[in-house]
């Protein structure tokens, strides 16, 4: 039951993500995004698979206001899992290859319509669920994305919301 392990892993990995990323940066492959001047570095996952995983995570939870750097964190979490588990690494590689195979084009080079079609076809597979659960847990638990969605995070250091709008709703009907 990979889905159980992954949910747990995703939960547990989040806190250690920075450490894992730092370790991966020391040696490994890199996808360079020249526009964003940003590099995704993986230790175990090959470049084409990494590009496919990044593209798939964006198909699963697409947000125009999030740059690839945040979806890259999902790939880094998957890479940490793949580094610890060869079977998991193989599943990711095969899963990405299978997404693009019917089109004769690597998944990350597919058109947006074909990407959605390919991901939809993968629904129900262990690979799909691994990607979906890792993305949903990793993407939104990253405090750096919270302000982009209006979430304010920890409040105790500001004295909570007692004097900062816990009851400031203004649009409710008077009656």
């Amino acid at each position: 039951m990979m889905s159980i392990d992954l949910s747990r892993r995703a939960l547990l990995l989040n806190s250690g993500l920075a450490v894992a990323t730092a370790a991966a940066m020391a040696s490994g492959l890199a996808i360079i995004d020249p526009q964003a001047a940003w590099a995704l570095t993986t230790k175990t996952i090959d470049q084409e698979t990494a590009a496919g995983l990044l593209a798939m995570s964006r198909v699963l939870y697409p947000h125009a206001n999030l740059s690839d750097v945040y979806y890259g964190k999902v790939v880094e979490a998957l890479d940490a899992g793949a580094s610890a588990d060869a079977a998991f690494a193989a599943m990711l590689r095969d899963g990405v290859a299978k997404l693009g195979a019917p089109y004769g084009v690597p998944f990350h080079r597919l058109s947006a319509g074909s990407r959605l079609e390919a991901v939809t076809a993968a629904q129900g597979s262990e690979f799909f669920e691994a990607l979906r659960s890792t993305t949903v847990w990793t993407l939104y638990s990253n405090p750096q994305v919270w302000p982009l969605f209006g979430y304010q995070g920890s409040s105790v250091e500001y004295g909570g919301y007692l004097e900062r709008g816990f009851d400031d709703i203004a649009w409710l009907p008077k009656e």
Binding site: R132, S133, V136, W137, Y140, S141, G150, Y151
Partner: peptide
């Protein structure tokens, strides 16, 4: 629901364009 768990817990298993648009309406 806190945002860190919102997407995963609100509708377990949900994904895609429509769900992502709703997540953007968190506030």
């Amino acid at each position: 629901l806190g945002f860190a768990v919102f997407g995963a817990v609100m509708m377990p298993g949900a994904w895609g364009e429509t769900y992502a648009r709703d997540i953007e309406k968190y506030t």
